[in-house]
Each structure stands twice: as structure tokens, then as C-alpha cells.
Design a protein around this nucleic acid. Sequence first.
RNA 1: GCCAUCUUAGCUCAGAGGUAGAGCAACGGUUUCGUAAACCGUAGGUCCCGGGUUCAAAUCCCGGAGAUGGCUCCA
Length: 659
Amino acid sequence: MVPPSPEQPGNRTALQILKEQGKLTSDTVAARVGDELVDLHSPVSNPAMVVPVVKSDLDALRVIRHSASHIMADAVQRLFPGTKVTFGPATDKGFFYDFDRPEGQFSESDLERIEAVMKQIIADNIPFRREVISKEEARKLFEGMNETYKVEHIERLEGEITIYRHGDWVDLCAGPHVLSTGCVPAVKLTSVAGAYWRGDERNPMLQRIYGTAFTSDEELQRYLDALQEAKNRDHRKLGRELDLIGFHKLAPASPFFMPRGTQVYNRLIEYLRALYSEYGYLEVISPQIYDNELFRISGHLPEYAENMFAATTVESLEESADRISKRSDFDAPSLQRELEQSLRYGVKPMNCPGHCLMYGMNRRSYRELPMRMADFGRLHRFERSGVTQGLTRVRTFSQDDGHIFCTLDQIQSEIASFLDLVNRVYKDFGFSDVRVMIATRPDERLGSDEAWDRAEEALKQAVKAKGLPFEIAEGEGVFYGPKIEFHINDALGRPWQLGTIQVDFNLPERFDLTYVGEDNQHHRPVMLHRAIFGSVERFLGVLIEHVGGAFPLWLAPEQVVLLTVSEKVNDYAREVLLQLQLQGIRAVSDFSSDKLGAKIRNARAMRYPYLAVIGQKEAEQKGVSLRSRDQNKDLGFTSLNALVDIIRREGVPFSMRNN
RNA sequence: GCCAUCUUAGCUCAGAGGUAGAGCAACGGUUUCGUAAACCGUAGGUCCCGGGUUCAAAUCCCGGAGAUGGCUCCA
């Protein structure tokens, strides 16, 4: 690392200052002055406040990655003259740079070439240099280079404009950067993708190249290994290998649950049902298809129409055709109206409108509140083809949906109770590290400020009362009310939003829902939307990846598999199988003529929690030789009673165990 | 929807303008075996679909479907 020494007059550089103060270490990447990140090679005005930013610092990684993106853009323009640069920031996992390349796209093999040139630029160890210029100079500079996107962006900038050079290459950039290109220790280009200029789909499509950079080759390798591990745990891969789920092109983005997957799915729902009876929910079943009038009342039409499946009948279509054929003067608008009329029904994308109808079917008393309605009804949403993904983004799914009708005063205690429930559930699935996010009123909203004040305060108070740390997402609430979101990290540290609870002032209003209060007057209830899993499909997908396909004993499709050493013990093994099944244990068997080693290998691939080996010895002593999946070792001879005890004890979620 | 990539046996993948390959799985047989793969054999294909170019297309071109990675990070 040979630092350049800028010959600028006046202030000394952060590098010089740190060196004088004896704070400069070999892993210093940049510096911080107050809150501001600065280059090592640029002059700073107040030396007393300069602090080094070292490699282990998260900010250091961003600086390195941002510099890597410049190096990449340089390499791209060397290899593909005429390509224009746009934006190239560091991201959480690496960096990207968006290019406008007239000849078209970059291919995967281009990435290798670009990477090779990048490595050369890094080896050349070219110093980065920051310059402050006027808007006019900047405009002239980038116009001269025909960098039209940069020129466009300059017009949006105010105040000081900075550019960064390394060698001949220059970019409009806020910085900061590392000392020189040699200070990017490990870099790798990962993928190409299309991206719109400024992220707006009305703008031209640019070519985005993704890459990542780390402070060492070891760190980079660890990241690549983690990517590989994520690939191995991918629920689409495991879902097929373990015969849990399937997809077919005749039902795009709609999962099929194979028998084994259905077992897990149903067990998830049974588990919640058990909790619901404890937490005072009443389960309901509501229709799938409604007259569109419902969705007009709820506001889903026209707002949500593009995500809904329309439904109709032949009768309705024939009536429309009839009317059209009888009139010759149909113009476009009336045809449009006719079409809408013929599509009389809609498939529900949410349960709430139906639940509002159910609430309104009886006169409600304050004594009935809070009324907690749960529904595992199937929902259909039309997701655009590019956004669907495995189980995590599908077109048909069910939610562990629930709606609580209550008074404003009851919100806080309802939230408190829900927080208990959510935490208990996540703990049972081994999700630690739950983060709570409170989203407050957006600019465009429904309901009085007073109601918002009370609702937001109720959310905060309830969370505080539980002693839970939380973050506020200012203005991120939905238009109809504030909400709490629950985010978890899975076993690979990836974040997921699962549960939520949302206050809704809107729907009770639209459906004119009321209850009779103590005062014998009609009052408007508040509605809470809440879910713990979110979509059951998505939750299962996350869970599969979290446990790597190895479901806990209480969820596993099979709890134990019997493996015979030879045919000679098949009779005894059959008897054991029957005994276990009679005791309610989910037991299966492998009586094939494979050798024991192969049977164990196959059984492990299927992630059976327990393997029970049965040979001559076990048949004589009336037991099995038990092997645990999670410990991956032989636990020795186990009697049948002991086996049943083990499975019964472990076959229950943590929070429902007696001891 | 848009950009890129992909689609060959149930699965994982190789191949390639001259007519289809492997491993695993399946099926049949031999073996009866003690803690992560016994052996032999059989069968399995509209090379995603439709059109075009060609003497010849699974391969090249066009269109479509489905899938995969992106389309939030802001000079």
C-alpha cells in the first residue's frame, strides 16, 4: 500500500494527521470526521476530530466496495468503449454499477474478462484522488466525455460537486474512496441484471453488473461458501428432494403439496389451532368467490384490481354477448362497462372483507368484544410473472389470518396478548433474534389524528410493556392505520418479515360496522389485522431453509424409520412397526435388500429424525438400536417403551411441553 | 410486466446441423449383509411448445410458455 501524497496546498490529509497522531494502522481504510466519512488522501480542516476507520469497521467495507465499483466501471469502459456510466453504489452485500451499453447486454463470459481487467487495475495500484469542482466545470467535463446520465444528474445536485479520479478514469462521486486501487483486497463479479435508470420502469433499461468485495480472500471465500450453503438449503431444491412440494407449468406460481408436505402444512395449522383456543380466537370459514360489489365496498376495486383474479360464469358471459349482439351502436366505453358487468365475481385476495360481512350479520354488543376471528382460507393474488418465487411468492396461499374487532380502548391489551403469542410461536420454531418494527402514520391516510395518536400510542405502550426493543419506521404505516411488523433472521442470518398486526380504521367505516355500547348507543369498532406466519406457504419455505429440511420431531412427516439388517428379522420389524403405529408414532420402514449402510444413507438423506436399526440382536432382546439424526450417532440399544417415551416427549413443541 | 440466463430420461447433468448419452432413482434377478452407496440386467426421450431456414433441426432464426437471478440501496 503506497499512499500517494496529494500536493494540495492548505490543509493536511487525514492520512498525515493520523500518522502524526500515531493512530495509523496498516488496516486503516478511511477516516471519520464527526459523522462524516472521508478519504485518507484528502485534506481535512479540523485535525483534532479525525478518527481512523479500520477494516473490521462496517463502513470500511462500504468504502472498499464503492471503490471496487469504480474499478469495475473503469474496466468495463476499457473493454467496451462507448458504454456510458450511471450509478454505482456499494450495497449491503457488495456493489453494482449500472451501464448504458449501446451494443446490448453483458454476458456471463464478459464478467470474467471484466474481472481480469479489474485485477490488473488493482495490481497497478493507481491512487484515487478527490477533486472539488464547480457545477459548470462538472457539466463541461462530463459533456466532453459524453456521459449524458452524469450530466443529467449534475443538474439535480446542489452545492459542492466532487469527482474522483484514479489514473485517467474519472467519475462524478461523493466518495469516499480507498487510497489506491491496490487497497481493494478481494473482489468478485457475481451477476448481470437489467435495472431501470433511477429504478423507474418508465426509464430506459440499463445493464447492471453485481459484484462484491471483501477485506481478504478468506472473507470473500466465506461469503461464497455461505451463498453455496443457501443454495443447498433452497426450499425449492429440498422441497423436491424430500418430496414435500412440486410445481407444474399448468399452474404457474402455485405450489402443489405432496403428501409429505401436506403433513407438515397441516401440522403447522394444527399447532396454531391449539394456540388459538388458548388465546381466545374463534375459527371461521368464509367463501372463496364474491360478487364484485363486496370488493367495491372494501375498496379492493379498483385499487387492488390488478392483483385480483376475476371470475365469471358462462351464463353471465352469454348474457353480455346477447346484449352486445342486439345493439349495433356499442362504443368503446359501453363495451368496457359490459365487460366489467360480465365479470361479475372476484376471487378473494384477502379474508377481511368477508369477515366484515360476518361481523355485520348480527347486531353486536360491547360484551362480544374483542371478537377474534381466525381464518385459514385460501387466497389468490395475481403476482406478476417476474416476481414469483418458490413458496415465498406465490399466487395461491393461505394465511394464518385473523381479525380482531374491538374498541379503541382494547387495542393495547390485544396487542400485548398478540405479542405473547408471536414470541411463543417464533421460539417454538427456533427463530431467535426477533425484531419489532412500529410503522407510523403516512402522509396520505384515513381517520382522525386523534384516533392515530391513540392507536400509535397503544402500539408503543404494548411493546414497551413487554420490554421488547423496537424500531420506529416513521411514515411507513398503511393508509388505514399503524402497524407492527415482526422480522426474524433464519439460521443463515437472512432476514424475513413474518408476522404483523395492523390497526384498521377504514374497513369498519366502509362496512358501517357497529356495536351497541354500555350506553345503548351505536359505536364504531376498530379492526386489527394480524398474522404470525404471514402466508403459511412462505413460512414453510422459510422454515425448510431454516432447518435445512430437518424438521423437528413434532413437525416431521415421519418420526422414526425402521431399518432391518437382513430379511431374517422382517417379521419382528413388522411387529415393531405395528406397535409404534398403534401408539400414535409416525413410523415407516425400509425392508429392502439394501445393506445397512445404504439404508442409513438413504434415511439420512430423507432427514428422518430417528433411525431404528433392527438385527438379530434387537429381535432377541425386543428392542431397536437407535440412531439420532441430529446427533448423527448410534445411541445404542433402546427398548420399545423407551423409544415411545423419547418420541412422545420430543414430539411436542417446546412451549407445550409439561416439564 | 421489463432485462439477462436457462429448459435434454423421475432427479442431477453431459453432448451437438447428420437422427440421443452418463450417474442416481425405477423395474427384474442374484446377494441376507451390523451404522453414510453390494452386484448383474431391463426399461425409460415429441431434446419445453409452435412456426421458419435447410437435403437434413434437439442443435440455427422468430414467436410463445415455464423457471432462475435481478429490477430497494441512489453521484
